[in-house]
Design a protein around this nucleic acid. Structure first.
Lengths: 174, 174
DNA sequence: ATCAATTATATTGCGCACAATTAAATTGAA
DNA sequence: TTCAATTTAATTGTGCGCAATATAATTGAT
């Protein structure tokens, strides 16, 4: 009934105590051994928050190219090799058709890609770059460089960090 | 104007050449020195993709608690200390009111939190836990444990990885 | 050849994220 | 005191992400 049932008392950890060394054993911090519920200990929240932040950092850069960040990712895939089917794009980006179909339609409306059924298998939709879409690659070359300037991490640590993140979760589809 | 003006020629790179060892120097791989546009080299895509994947992993666990992943994060914050204002929640989660207001309204509709104006400053909205919301913490204790089982990384590397990710992007608001 | 199972994409509905805007309360300088 | 600037949430509109479902084409067993 009483509202502030948290009963944590105003005290609470004065220093962030961002130390990881504490064994994640039970009966540690909170009202009921929920040390592992602390937000600042959550790897998943760090990933979630960093991903949100990165999208916000890309926005002003990509606005100039007329792209959103997911659209930019689709263009990266197509710049590497085109044409591709929707399914191949989905495999590369780990996104499903519910996300990609409307995204590709917007890109088509913006003149960056063309979509057509594969004559050899009418279930497939082939996505190819238009002249404008292929040409946009030039403008995109500066994007990773500019964005990397926001990284508060030595450049030689970026590669290893990327590989650790990629190793964190195994592929799920196959 | 003509639709399929891609003119990439059907040829296109035959082998993926997915080797990472290549030095990140200029004029390396692509049609125009765009080695840094390769998706598999992108730290940002690794973060983006991992974040999407994690949300999908949480879903079946959180469905049982009647929470989405962002709602679960809000509950983590409130379980640590409540009540809090919408602004304090936004600071903790790095989300703005455009995201939080409807999210909190849904949580209120589900009986997990209560929202009321701060009498001392009518601009503020105070979010507090209901009995049900506070009680849900018990059910949540197993969530991090279960989710960690999906990590394909030695447990002793999780903490350092989290800290590297947190160090990657500096805070922006203050 | 037929048709049930499979495959590929599209559609629907919901819940985020966030920029831009609005509305209301508070603060503070003149 | 008055009122302009600031602060805090809410609102509006766009674009994801994804589960569930639908639709259509292909495959394959009989």
């Amino acid at each position: 009934m009483t509202d502030d049932t948290t009963s944590t008392g105003g005290a609470a950890t004065p220093s962030p105590a961002s130390d990881p060394p504490v064994a994640d054993g039970p009966a540690s911090g909170g009202p009921a051994g929920g040390e592992l519920l602390r937000l600042d200990r959550q790897l998943c929240f760090a990933l979630y928050s960093a991903s949100n932040r990165i999208t916000r950092l890309y926005r002003p850069l990509l606005d100039k190219l007329g792209l959103t960040y997911p659209q930019y990712l689709a263009m990266l895939v197509l710049w590497e090799r085109a044409p591709r089917t929707v399914g191949e794009l989905g495999d590369a980006l780990d996104l499903d058709s519910g996300t990609l179909t409307p995204l590709l339609k917007r890109m088509e409306a913006n003149g960056l890609v063309a979509r057509r059924r594969d004559p050899a298998d009418e279930r497939r939709v082939i996505v190819e770059l238009t002249e404008a879409g292929a040409a946009l690659r030039e403008q995109a070359l500066s994007v990773p460089v500019t964005l990397a300037c926001h990284f508060a991490l030595p450049l030689d640590e970026v590669g290893p960090l990327r590989d650790r993140i990629k190793a964190l979760l195994p592929p799920e589809k196959p």
